[in-house]
């Protein structure tokens, strides 16, 4: 809570917006928190709070396939996306805190009516990973993370297209397609969300595409048409890139 009375704060803002501070100096208004100075953890040192060891191996391997590290830019592992997912599942999102989770759960309705499983995201990941691992054991006698890259890609493609029968793997009513869509959505979130959530380490994904993060002040750029913006991103905690 801020102790500044609303009126005073408003005047302060009015002054700031009228004088149009240039984007370069915007960071000076940011309260630098301790975390700005803290180096994000190395993925190898991170102890997951939600995933168990086997699940963690799956998440690492899936992240590496879905956003690999290559000449175009950093991959999901380099940017700590698995840490983001672990933290999200450990926190309110994982518990579906905002979702309507009362029954009856009618899971054979038209998919266009949206998500109807009785699972929170935590449960969905638990069941989903277990089903994929059972599939890998059945088909290849190996864990997902022990498969070669081409085979992993093939399996992820089948998941995406809902071509692995989760019912036959004892995972109904979860389907391969729904599991994949959560996994892929959360991976993209971790890649592109502000680093305070654990992924997008050093704003690597933002730098790759040229997103400015929390700069949030561009008045003088509106009418500079077709001119590339020159500055790198800033993060919520004040990191600059």
């Amino acid at each position: 809570m801020s102790s500044m009375p609303d009126d005073e704060q408003r005047r302060d803002f009015m002054r700031r917006s009228l004088t149009l501070i240039p984007a370069v100096s915007l960071g000076s208004g940011v309260t630098l928190t301790a975390s700005a100075a803290e180096e994000p953890p190395a993925l190898a040192d991170y102890q997951p709070s939600f995933f168990n060891t086997d699940e963690w191996q799956f998440i690492l391997a899936a992240c590496d396939q879905l956003i690999p590290s290559d000449e175009h830019g950093p991959g999901a592992l380099e940017t700590n996306v698995p840490i983001f997912i672990d933290k999200e599942l450990y926190g309110p999102f994982g518990h579906a805190d905002r979702w309507y989770m009362q029954g009856p759960f009618i899971t054979d309705g038209d998919p266009e009516l949206g998500y109807q499983l009785p699972y929170t995201p935590r449960e969905l990941y638990r069941h989903g990973i277990a089903a994929v691992e059972r599939y890998c054991q059945q088909e290849h006698d190996k864990a997902f993370s022990a498969l070669d890259a081409a085979t992993r890609d093939d399996i992820l493609g089948r998941l995406e297209q809902d071509k692995i029968d989760f019912a036959a793997l004892d995972a109904a009513p979860l389907t391969a397609g729904v599991f994949f869509s959560f996994l892929w959505q959360n991976i993209r979130e971790g890649y592109f969300a502000d680093p305070i959530y654990g992924g997008n380490k050093h704003m690597g994904a933002w730098k790759m595409i040229g997103f400015t993060g929390a700069r949030a002040n561009f008045r003088e750029w509106v009418e500079q048409h077709n001119v590339p913006y020159p500055l790198g991103p800033v993060s919520l905690s004040g990191e600059r890139g």
Binding site: A96, D97, R98, W99, Y100, M101, Q102, I106, G109, D110, E112, L113, G114, Y115, Q116
Partner: peptide, 21 residues
């Protein structure tokens, strides 16, 4: 939605399902 969700169906014969998020 945990406080007030809305259920949706497309016609009078379908069973409406909640918009869970």
């Amino acid at each position: 939605p945990s406080q007030a969700a809305i259920t949706i169906r497309r016609n009078l014969n379908e069973t409406a399902l909640p918009n869970r998020y």
